[in-house]
Design a protein around this nucleic acid. Structure first.
Lengths: 317, 317
DNA sequence: AGGTTTAGTGCAACTGTTTGCAGTCTTGAA
DNA sequence: TTCAAGACTGCAAACAGTTGCACTAAACCT
């Protein structure tokens, strides 16, 4: 029923090894034979069996991608780009989701290990110890986490945060609130130190907060009390929640207070006012991670972020 | 380096077939031997090689999932659920994206075919002919498309649309606009016929429109001209765009006109006003599709939709 | 006691490809 | 004309498992 390399060999009068070579090392076979084999293969509808190939070569041409939550709007563009890049290079991509549990990461990598040539881990929560253990099992690249010895792609949030605060300063804001993320978050720390570096504005840090819409909503009161006219939120979800919360308190955005988010997720673009935000190069990160994996290079890359100015920022009253 | 079934066999003094059986048919091996083999395997860090297993059994324990656009907010919850279900049943899930091109579907299934036990196709755009051709290659189940002979999971948009219009009618709206989707869309037709069945309201169909925010935005003018006080949009993106467009024309939602969307995507929940919408059971659909695939049953299922009432609907002036 | 079932295990063939090695046949150079 | 060097191609042994069949020994019947 399923047509194998042997069928093709028989039908085209050559040995299986020749058929094999016309697919995996075409230059080693005579042009005439090659086209003959190719046409016969086409007629018979032959497709190489990747499992068999994997068995001998040890390479599966599969990659794994592990993220915290597929449904979190931050990830889909990254997944999409990674998938596209993989496919273009004739790889297939397994996607898995830890549901925000650190333990699941290790378990997933284990499960993947015999089945992929490498895995990309997005913002892994596992300890360094655990990650080193995994490195022994399967090559991987991490996104958004510093980890020496491993291939890494970072997005330079710090730079983006600085741009954001400078943007606010440029509009004339002198008191800027930073609605921070969860305690212990690398990103949150990065944002804070960058924001503090900007001259000419007084920075009030509010937090820690949950990295969600509710977190932003809940922070609205303290933002008002702070007297800030501009605010940088930990991410777009927080920004959206904050704008909502400020609205409840009778403060309009951007008339009364300017808000800038981070991430540039779809809901921010659809929000009213459209969110001014720091765009994270998630697609580029996904692509790059896949490339690094396939080419087996260990490098640390830092991707530029940029500020997208939309409607949630304006000069202060 | 990599530990195989033979290593385990040698170390535990049994034949490879016994080791094989302790993993794939535990009941066929004596309890004592089984535990011995198991502990030895554990010590050696043995993991069955899925490629080799796939080669002999013909089953890969992999599934494919093909959607139009991973980054479209409609899909991630479905992908997430499908992935979780697959993993729970010891399957891995390839995710791929056609980027909205019908041709890519067939190509992708081809590419997957030797590598998966089945694939789930979400709202496939390919012709019936093409799909039948694919059915010969690999088992599949389709989501959101009627296709006789294939396992199918449908979401009953029609019912949801009816509920939506009834909701508007119940609030007192007598003139309701339907901002339809693209011409030739099954969903759009379904929505329309269901909406027309509701008594007591006059339905004005506006469209076809692009199924995007811009499509909704562009339709705002015609909605105003129609004199409708309530509108059912083709989906949440259209609804969000429409609300924006109505705002530009000086019409507030829900004060001046009520809007209900379809899909219940995240951006709708975060919108202001929060969108009243027809919730599609995408997660359930994803789970069910992989179940059907794994159990190899050919069934046609129709999943209930429900109306989620939030802030974009109110009684007319 | 003798025959039959049953549980547990070993044997070896098989899955579809790759690849190092060896052989054949041209070609080109000396 | 002879020899070396390529260019192709065939051979057969892996790769890491699964599984039908045969075999042994113990347990179960009459």
């Amino acid at each position: 029923m399923t047509v194998t390399i042997r069928d093709v060999a028989r039908a085209s009068g050559v040995h299986v090894s020749t058929v094999s070579r016309t697919f995996s090392a075409p230059h080693m076979v005579n042009a005439a034979t090659r086209t003959r084999v190719l046409t016969v293969a086409e007629e018979l509808g032959y497709r190489p069996n990747r499992a068999a190939r994997a068995l001998t070569t040890g390479r599966t041409h599969n990659l794994g991608l592990i993220v915290a939550d597929i449904a979190n709007p931050f990830f889909p563009p990254l997944i999409k780009a990674a998938q596209a890049e993989a496919r273009q290079r004739d790889y297939h991509l397994f996607v898995a989701d830890t549901d925000e549990e650190a333990g699941a990461e290790e378990e997933l990598v284990q499960a993947f290990s015999k089945q992929v040539d490498g895995v990309v881990l997005c913002s892994p929560r596992s300890s360094n110890k655990a990650l080193e253990r995994l490195a022994a099992r399967v090559p991987f690249v991490v996104i958004n986490r510093r980890l020496r010895g491993a291939a890494t792609v970072l997005m330079d949030v710090g730079h983006g945060a600085r741009l954001a605060v400078e943007h606010l300063a440029g509009l004339g804001h002198r008191r800027v609130a930073l609605v921070a993320g969860p305690a212990g978050s690398w990103t949150s720390a990065e944002i804070r130190t960058a924001a503090e570096e900007v001259d000419g504005v007084e920075l009030i840090v509010i937090g820690p907060n949950a990295p969600t819409e509710r977190g932003g909503f809940a922070a609205a009161g303290r933002v008002r009390e702070s007297g800030a006219t501009g605010v940088l939120a930990y991410n777009d979800l927080v920004a959206i929640g904050l704008i909502d919360g400020l609205g409840e308190l009778g403060l309009g955005v951007p008339e009364d207070v300017s808000v800038v988010g981070i991430d540039d997720i779809v809901p921010g673009r659809l929000n009213r006012p459209k969110l001014t935000t720091v765009a994270m190069p998630t697609a580029a990160a996904g692509r790059l991670a896949v490339d690094l994996l396939i080419q087996e290079v260990t490098a640390t890359t830092s991707l530029e972020t940029r500020l997208v100015i939309r409607d949630s920022t304006a000069p202060p009253r």
